[in-house]
Design a protein around this nucleic acid. Structure first.
Length: 425
RNA sequence: GGCGUGGUGGCAGAGUGGUUGAAUGCACCGGUCUUGAAAACCGGCGGACCCGAAAGGGUCUCGUGAGUUCGAAUCUCACCCGCGCCGCCA
């Protein structure tokens, strides 16, 4: 969420930000409305507070007179009149505030200056690591390998839950467990992250904090009876860990790693990547989250991204790093790098990580602050997160990139001790 | 799920309708003292918002939201959360 003060003195900045995301046309009327409402809001506050101040004074005089045994009926009558005024003023203030708040909650974050304007076509490849295998060299797609080797069972996943739900079995199931331990171990032991294990069901306040609500309710699985939602990513519970708290400057930066299942309805994506493991409703992921100061957050994005890249290097999977253009950058993010790994069986680059800095956008929503020094005013922290990594697509890439001509799969060295073998199949 | 009980500032803990944003203690910050530190003493010390160039002034905030009242931390109702016991349960 943006600072409401932007509506007073930085409307141009706000409009420019929306333009870079390609949303100005859509949002211009909303921005104008918000600018007007913010003026109304402050006006209503001022008038109401003046009335309240008058009433408070009268109440004290009433108390004073009563103590002296004097009559105060006239003051009481006047005070009551102010009370009626206040009720009306409050109503107006609440209505205006609710509307401006609603608008503010649904405006995407401003991207950093270095983020190019434009949509997906304006994304740029920053660097590539490793050598992708040719996509036409007879490499079987991961679902064929997985089924042939008895490691994934898509028909039964569909039977149990529906399409887009996977059953891993045998060495495939163990691979999931191995990936989890491997990734968490590297991040805790080599990158200094604190390990967390978090709830998969969260409440509305939590989802509002990270930006999924109110705008993206339809993208999530909901438990209506309890007003809870299945998390789309561990970012949600982890970032909200310190919601409504004030940290000491000495505690920053803080970094957390958490494994979780992730649930996505993928509303509106019917027909895309329907085969195999590429786009599913439930997948597993190891997520990194960092809390940083505003001064360091930009640099921390590089650190975070390097940590995610490290995992791909250890898994010996060729990948490329994309700088997303403003229009392709997520709602809450100010700048995002996507990591894409090449899967030669399907001949596609697969997004396996998205590393973002959110500036104070999430922190303001979630009210996560820190104090630079004792006695100083609290400031909002900056939050970052990135997948490191998303399992199902990584498994697809492992099955395809490390596929041998005899149909077996070579296990990357770093993963062998977790899996207990160096070949699958 | 049932019954009971409780939610006050960073923590502990007073306060049951009127100068209470809130005693007191601890913690924290500044100062005096000290070679230095500790102790002692003095002072300060929640957050959000509005007006203002600033100085400063004002409003809100005692789990959340409604209500009673001229006036609510204090009274009423609903909800949320904690704790205890019972029930159920991986």
């Amino acid at each position: 969420m943006h600072d409401i003060r932007l509506l007073r003195d930085q409307m141009d900045h706000l409009r420019e930000g929306m333009r870079r995301r390609g949303k100005l046309e859509e949002l211009a009327p909303v921005l104008n409305r918000a600018e007007f409402l913010e003026k109304e809001r402050r006006d209503a506050i001022r008038v109401a507070e003046e009335a309240q101040a008058r009433r408070n004074k009268l109440s004290q005089e009433v108390a004073q007179r009563r103590r002296n045994g004097e009559n105060a009926d006239d003051l009481v009558a006047e005070s009551r009149k102010i009370g009626d005024e206040l009720t009306a003023l409050e109503e107006k203030r609440a209505a205006v505030e609710a509307e401006v708040q609603q608008i503010l909650m649904e405006l995407p974050n401003l991207t950093l200056d270095e983020v190019p304007a434009g949509g997906e076509e304006a994304n740029t490849i920053l660097r590539t690591w490793g050598t992708p295998r040719a996509g036409d060299s007879g490499i079987a797609p991961h679902w064929e390998v997985g089924e042939r080797l008895g490691m994934i069972d898509l028909p039964r996943g569909a039977k149990i839950s529906g399409s887009g739900f996977i059953v891993y079995r045998g060495a495939g199931a163990k691979l999931v467990r191995a990936l989890m331990n491997f990734m968490i171990d590297v991040h805790t032991e080599e990158h200094g992250y604190e390990e967390l294990w978090v709830p998969l069901l969260v409440n509305r306040a939590t989802l509002t904090g990270t930006g999924q609500l109110p705008k993206f309710e339809d993208d999530m699985y909901a438990i209506a009876d309890d007003d809870l939602f299945l998390i789309p990513t561990a970012e949600v519970p982890v970032t909200n860990l310190y919601r409504d708290e004030i940290l000491d400057a000495g505690e920053l930066p803080r970094s957390f790693v958490a494994f979780s299942a992730c649930f996505r309805r993928e509303a509106g994506s019917a027909g895309k990547d329907t085969r195999g493991l590429l786009r599913v409703h439930e997948f597993d992921k190891v997520e990194l989250v960092r809390y940083a100061t505003p001064e360091s957050s930009r640099d921390e994005l590089e650190v975070l991204t390097a940590h995610a890249e490290k995992m791909l290097q250890l898994l010996e999977l060729p990948y490329r790093v994309l700088r997303l253009a403003a229009g392709d950058t997520g709602f809450s993010s100010a700048m995002t790098y996507d990591l894409e790994v090449f899967a030669p069986g399907v001949g596609k680059w697969l997004e396996v990580s998205s590393c973002s800095v959110f500036t104070d956008f999430q922190a303001r929503r979630a009210n996560i602050r820190y104090r630079t020094a004792p006695g100083e005013k609290p400031r909002f922290v900056h939050t970052l997160n990135g997948s490191a990594l998303a399992f199902s697509r990584i498994i697809a890439a492992l099955f395809e990139h490390h596929q041998q001509s005899d149909g077996t799969i070579t296990v990357p060295a770093a993963l062998r001790r977790y899996l207990g073998r160096d070949t699958l199949g």
